[in-house]
Design a protein around this nucleic acid. Sequence first.
DNA 1: TTTTGAGTTGTTCGA
DNA 2: GTCGAACAACTCAAA
Length: 460
Amino acid sequence: MSTPHIVWFRQDLRVSDQAALAAAAAAGPVIPVYILDDAAPEHWRMGAASRWWLHHSLASLSKALEKYGGTLLLLKGDAVATLKNLMAATGATTVHALEHFEPWAQRQQAALGGALTLHQGLSLAHPTAMRTGSGTSFKVFTPFWRALQMHMPPSLPKPPPKKLHMFPDVPAGDSLYRWKLLPENPDWATPIKEHWSPGSAGAHAQLNAFVDHAENYSDARNTPSVKGTSKLSPHLHFGEISPAEVWHGVPSVEPYLRQLGWRDFSCNLLLASPDFADVNWKSNFDSFPWVDDKAGLKAWQYGTTGYPIVDAGMRELYATGWMHNRIRMITASFLIKDLMIDWRAGEAWFWDTLVDASLGNNAAGWQWVAGSGADASPYYRIFNPVSQGEKFDANGIYVRRWVPELAKLPNAHIHAPWLAPKNVLDYAGVELGKTYPKPIVNHDTARLRALAAYKSLKAA
DNA sequence: TTTTGAGTTGTTCGA
DNA sequence: GTCGAACAACTCAAA
């Protein structure tokens, strides 16, 4: 019997276009393993929504491997030690894995040294291939995107191995259910379940559904009430589908491919600045006068700010584990600029509640809105939650879906119920402060306060 | 080394 | 209602 090759699955839970699996399968008998590992610092351990997704994704991967004659071994503990033990117990000398870019993943990869063979498949292009003319990493998206396109299209996706030869003598693993990744008492995942089907099959179904309307992406992507976006983000995050499979699977719609480019860009930023998720990329923001507003944070989290478009978004997030991208910007702008709460509080909430929570993407989004990021939004760009609602949810469909207590308000007042005449509110059964909150801040004054704070930063 | 052009996603104000 | 200007200054990337 030849020595086995370990395939270490992480956020690459697929069998097709999976270079680590392919290399191991070609080399000899395999041991596919997933290790539940709390290597990340406490506050970056996988969030609750992600854990729900992980459970189902692992179940799906396990099934997929069985189709090819493989079995997924589930282990728990420090990944480096666990892999070393597994190698010692089985005589394996090589671990195959796709390269990951989170700081703790980088540390683990370094610790495994020569025992680890890294393959590519998380990004469209390897970050070290993405360099400016002077050899530095990119800090601005547009030139990055131009450079990335020089490397595109990515290689065609590889089919799964025809057959896996499992190494017969594998130690016993855990059972997935014993990891208790699923919520109990209460089982808040019921509505999430209705919106998603984790796993590669679900990912490809989602891709096919998107392909049918991808041509409308440019227009429809900003309308949160319609299916305009791809909704592939969680599938991509868990690697149930590779970015190359997506690139080759969708029509060549530039604005969409550009979004894929953003995934790569975030990955580059994180690799270049390992503390990107924790500290202001622009250090002058360290003196920003954030407000410690626990009540405001809570109102934001649970969708009771009194601004319908913000509340709708936050409720969509809490119910489904996902939020439309346009609404992510609006809600983030509201937390940062209207409430002046530190962007990291919003980042942490998104981390816990998003099924697509990715360290680099999440941090890049928040730092961009805050203005502390590499390629940041200008400080005076403060979203007006009413005009954003009127512009992108003109007929109030999105708000009515997630804030049903406002459902009977006419379009003219759906985004600013506090401005509606009393008889209109009465007719709609809305009593502000009772059935729906009054606005927790006045946007006009909040805007001026934020502008002043940003100005003070500049002076400092 | 210096210069030049550009930088995801907006809003308000006043003519 | 529509339109252009102002809202800053700085850093990045490439020539």
